[in-house]
Design a protein around this nucleic acid. Structure first.
Ligand SMILES: [Mn+2]
Ligand SMILES: [Mn+2]
Ligand SMILES: [Zn+2]
Ligand SMILES: [Zn+2]
Lengths: 142, 142
DNA sequence: TCTCAATTTGTAACGATTACAAATTGATAT
DNA sequence: ATATCAATTTGTAATCGTTACAAATTGAGA
């Protein structure tokens, strides 16, 4: 009854090659919104012949077929996410981690965009994550 | 009584060179969120010796001093904005224009980010702008 | 086993950005 | 007015992420 990654890819019109399955599994299980380099470096040991071009190509296929998205929360790096339901992203200035957060499904539609057809939304927040924020406070309290 | 661009730059600890004044004026008067290339191409006729490196350097100074910001609403191009008060951006899939929109000052702070220190926000919306949306509807009605 | 299209691979090309050193500018002192 | 000197600007080369492309490989079906 469990749906395999292969079946999932097939159901989205993507032929489940070995590389595609491995890349999708890595992306789906990852919480870190990895870059191409991170994905490549992580899978390279298991798939010694893997080419970085394949990672680029595969991610492009995933995006075209709607099972992944690119996240440019920082202009210096493109990250990827297999979670495509609507959610926001928070990037910590200190530890550079990118966190997911839930957001109200229909962010009160903006008056100024009357007549516009809003098809996609990205919320990018920046600051100090819980962890880094706590550590900072401890230092201040000394 | 009117404050010149030069005075404005000085008040932000930026020496108002000819190039900096011209670049700031162009950015401030522009509604289009121009890229480095657009800025360079627009000013080049007036400042024949202008170097693209200067445009890069100057925008970096403006950002460091807090009078401009970079907008990466599309991973393939970095745009710049002299409007630094909080506002959202909408990019049209069809005409590729980037529109400003006002947003509630304190977007209901997200429960999931309890303990996080949110210092900056970017809202990127995508879809069809009023203009392109209307044209599409006209075609559909035929 | 053969065939053939899809996929993967490696390399080269591309383009935006940055590094860097030399040239220029402009404010200040003499 | 001229000299000085640090800040700014400029042009070129280097860097690096991404894309183009052609050859090699894969694997499903005949
Ligand atoms: Mn995410
Ligand atoms: Mn804007
Ligand atoms: Zn952190
Ligand atoms: Zn439009």
């Amino acid at each position: 009854m469990t749906v395999t990654v292969g079946d999932f890819l097939k159901s989205h019109d993507i032929k489940p090659s070995y590389q595609r399955v491995k890349i999708y599994e890595f992306l789906k299980n990852s919480k870190e919104h990895p870059t191409v380099d991170v994905i490549y470096s992580a899978l390279s040991p298991d798939i010694p012949t893997l080419s970085k071009t394949t990672v680029y190509n595969t991610l492009k296929v995933f995006i075209d077929k709607g099972i992944a998205m690119a996240i440019t929360i920082d202009e210096r790096e493109v990250r990827f996410d297999a979670e495509i339901r609507m959610h926001g992203h928070f990037k910590c200035y200190k530890c550079h981690q990118v966190y997911d957060f839930e957001m109200a499904d229909q962010t009160a539609d903006v008056d100024a965009l009357e007549g516009f057809d809003i098809m996609e939304r990205q919320l990018f927040y920046y600051g100090l994550c819980e962890h880094c924020n706590h550590k900072l406070k401890e230092v201040e309290e000394q």
